[in-house]
């Protein structure tokens, strides 16, 4: 419940904040160049190295961060679900090959892979970044959905569907995927936060969103410049925003899990809980 409230608050702030606090996040103040200001009435969260308003950057940054979190999640969930469902439903050698591929993907240090792809494709555009994060984080979902589908396959209602002559595609679309949906929803909620963390990590490496577009990871990265000393507000603000957002979606995911009556252990063994470790350790 707390998670839901917090998540809604963050989403509202991202949507309407910039409409209420109408200060440009990219306007450079020449008078304050190289001289970050601590929080004040004019700049409630202070200013950065270029004299830009930190509150405004935080609000716009929320939009970017949530955009990355949601869209990359949708890509990963869609791809992972389809992949896992096909693999689980097909069984046999196809399943084997598909799952070995997942193993291979998981055996890469995942973050290392993202850096490699991003550095090598040299894409700092937002869309490309989202695509890369999404396409490199679907494996957990694929495993999860496959496990669900495999266990559902033997259940009575599938047998029944088969008995009345439903084709495999129909069984997959009408029965298997909808029934595997609950754990996917939980995984999706958690993935939003994870993607935000990954994006922050990429910014830290200088592979973030193009300047001067504000993003939380980018703000944190700016604050780490050796030139910015004695300006703790620049380090604390984006960090706390990231932590709060992650907390919101974690709690929300936890709440959903209980509400959807998902056995935690089942989810864990199926592989979703492995991903959070990955992200926690990497981002």
């Amino acid at each position: 419940m707390a998670g839901l409230v917090l998540a809604i608050a963050i989403i509202l702030a991202a949507l309407f904040g910039p409409l209420l606090w109408r200060v440009s996040p990219i306007a450079i103040n020449h008078a304050l160049l190289g001289d970050p200001q601590p929080p004040s009435l004019v700049h409630p969260l202070g200013t950065d190295m270029l004299g830009r308003d930190e509150l405004s950057r935080a609000l716009y940054g929320a939009r970017i961060s949530l955009l990355i979190g949601f869209t990359a999640m949708i890509i990963a969930i869609t791809f992972g679900t389809v992949y896992g469902a096909i693999s689980g439903a097909a069984g046999g050698w196809l399943d084997s090959v598909m799952m070995r591929t997942v193993d291979a993907m998981l055996s890469f240090p995942s973050f290392f892979l993202i850096i490699t792809v991003e550095a090598l494709t040299n894409s700092f555009e937002l869309g490309m970044m989202i695509l890369i994060i999404g396409l490199l984080s679907w494996m957990g979902v694929a495993r999860l959905v496959r496990a669900e589908v495999m266990s559902l396959r033997e259940r009575d209602f599938i047998e029944a569907a088969r008995a009345i002559g439903a084709g495999p595609t129909r069984i997959l679309l009408r029965h298997l995927i909808p029934n595997a949906l609950a754990p996917v929803v939980v995984a999706a909620t958690l993935a939003i936060g994870d993607n935000i963390l990954i994006a922050a990590g990429l910014s830290f490496l200088g592979l973030g969103v193009q300047v001067p577009t504000p993003s939380w990871g980018g703000m944190l990265q700016d604050a780490l410049s050796p030139a910015v000393q004695n300006s703790p507000w620049l380090i604390v603000t984006p960090g706390i925003l990231i932590v709060l957002t992650l907390l919101a979606f974690s709690l929300l995911g936890e709440g959903l899990r209980v509400a959807l009556d998902q056995s935690i252990v089942q989810v864990g063994v199926a592989g979703v809980d492995v991903e959070p470790v990955a992200n926690a350790a990497t981002a």
């Binding site: 990219i26 306007a27 450079i28 160049l33 190295m49 270029l50 200088g206 592979l207 300047v211 001067p212 700016d222 780490l224 410049s225 050796p226 030139a227 910015v228």
Partner: peptide
Amino acid sequence: STGSHTIIDVCQEFQS
């Protein structure tokens, strides 16, 4: 070239 905060800041100032 990425990697230097100062250069990126200088570029953003130029941009503005």
